[in-house]
Simulated scan of single mutants.
Amino acid sequence: MQRWTRSRTTPNAPPIRDLSYEPGAGVNDATISGLGSSLLPALGNPDQANPLFVDHVLLAVGLHVAQTYGGMRPMSRPARGGLAPWQERRAKELLRANIMHGVALKEVARECGISVGYFSHAFRRTLGVAPHQWLIEQRVVLSKEKLRDDGLSLSDVATECGFSDQSHLTRIFRRTVGVSPGAWRRTLKR
Rank of each mutant, 00 (worst) to 15 (best):
A49Y: 06
P51R: 06
D55F: 00
L58N: 06
L58P: 00
V61M: 12
V65E: 03
G70Q: 07
G71S: 09
G71R: 05
M72R: 14
M75L: 15
A79M: 12
L83N: 05
L83S: 05
E88G: 07
R89D: 06
E93S: 13
L94K: 11
L95V: 15
L95F: 11
N98G: 02
H101V: 03
H101F: 06
V103A: 13
A104L: 12
A109T: 08
A109M: 08
R110D: 13
E111H: 14
V116G: 00
V116S: 01
G117H: 12
S120I: 09
F123G: 00
F123H: 02
R124N: 10
R125Q: 05
T126I: 13
G128H: 13
G128A: 08
A130R: 09
E137L: 06
Q138F: 00
R139D: 00
R139Q: 10
V140W: 13
V140Y: 11
S143N: 03
R148G: 14
D149I: 09
S153C: 11
V157M: 03
C161G: 06
C161A: 15
F163C: 11
S167M: 08
H168W: 05
L169W: 12
F173E: 01
R175A: 07
T176W: 09
G178P: 01
V179W: 13
V179S: 13
